[in-house]
Simulated scan of single mutants.
Amino acid sequence: MPTFRSAWNWVFGKHLPKPPNPDKTVEAGWVPVWQGPMLTELLKDEGVPAVWTEDFNLNMGVYNREAMARIFVTEDRKAEAEAIIKDFTGTSPRHRKL
């Protein structure tokens, strides 16, 4: 029988996180558009399936000053992809604020 404490923990988020889903696609990085194809090929060469797309933003000066691209990978490979991008570019990949 569930106790009051277990119900309290369930409601307020004190439960184990779900494991990464290999069928879910997530953003691994938000990079300048000229780096998109280069980093995607680098990730593929390292064995991480990845795709990139241009990020069309009407407000160029809000978060960035140049055309940007998003790199997508599966959720279970996100940490690996971010580490590869960081090793190659020297900085942690940014993520687009929504």
Results as ranks from 00 to 15, higher is better:
31 V>R: 02
75 E>N: 09
51 V>C: 02
4 F>Y: 13
77 R>Y: 00
83 A>N: 10
93 P>I: 02
87 D>L: 05
2 P>Q: 03
98 L>Q: 12
12 F>Y: 13
85 I>G: 02
36 G>K: 01
12 F>W: 14
98 L>F: 13
59 N>A: 11
19 P>W: 01
38 M>F: 09
60 M>D: 07
97 K>D: 12
88 F>P: 02
38 M>G: 00
89 T>S: 10
29 G>F: 09
28 A>L: 00
33 V>I: 12
57 N>W: 11
74 T>K: 10
93 P>S: 03
33 V>P: 01
92 S>V: 06
94 R>A: 11
66 E>N: 10
40 T>S: 05
14 K>E: 15
90 G>M: 06
56 F>R: 09
76 D>E: 06
31 V>I: 09
74 T>R: 11
12 F>R: 13
11 V>D: 10
75 E>A: 12
58 L>W: 11
27 E>Q: 08
74 T>D: 03
27 E>F: 00
89 T>D: 05
42 L>G: 01
36 G>L: 01
94 R>P: 00
80 E>D: 11
38 M>L: 12
6 S>W: 11
23 D>K: 07
90 G>S: 06
44 K>V: 13
5 R>T: 08
59 N>R: 10
67 A>P: 05
77 R>N: 01
24 K>S: 07
77 R>C: 00
25 T>K: 04
76 D>S: 08
88 F>V: 05
56 F>T: 05
75 E>S: 09
68 M>F: 04
11 V>Q: 14
13 G>K: 12
18 K>F: 07
26 V>R: 08
6 S>D: 14
4 F>R: 12
68 M>W: 06
27 E>M: 06
68 M>I: 05
1 M>G: 14
90 G>C: 07
43 L>I: 07
24 K>I: 04
41 E>I: 06
93 P>C: 01
32 P>V: 01
12 F>I: 05
5 R>M: 08
42 L>V: 08
81 A>R: 04
53 T>W: 04
88 F>E: 13
90 G>A: 07
85 I>E: 03
64 N>K: 15
6 S>I: 13
94 R>C: 01
8 W>T: 05
45 D>E: 15
3 T>L: 12
86 K>E: 13
22 P>Y: 01
80 E>T: 11
77 R>P: 00
9 N>L: 14
53 T>P: 02
16 L>M: 13
51 V>P: 00
58 L>V: 09
82 E>F: 04
9 N>E: 14
90 G>H: 10
3 T>S: 15
80 E>C: 02
72 F>G: 00
54 E>G: 06
46 E>H: 14
89 T>A: 03
2 P>E: 06
57 N>M: 12
64 N>V: 14
51 V>N: 12
64 N>E: 15
20 P>M: 00
83 A>I: 03
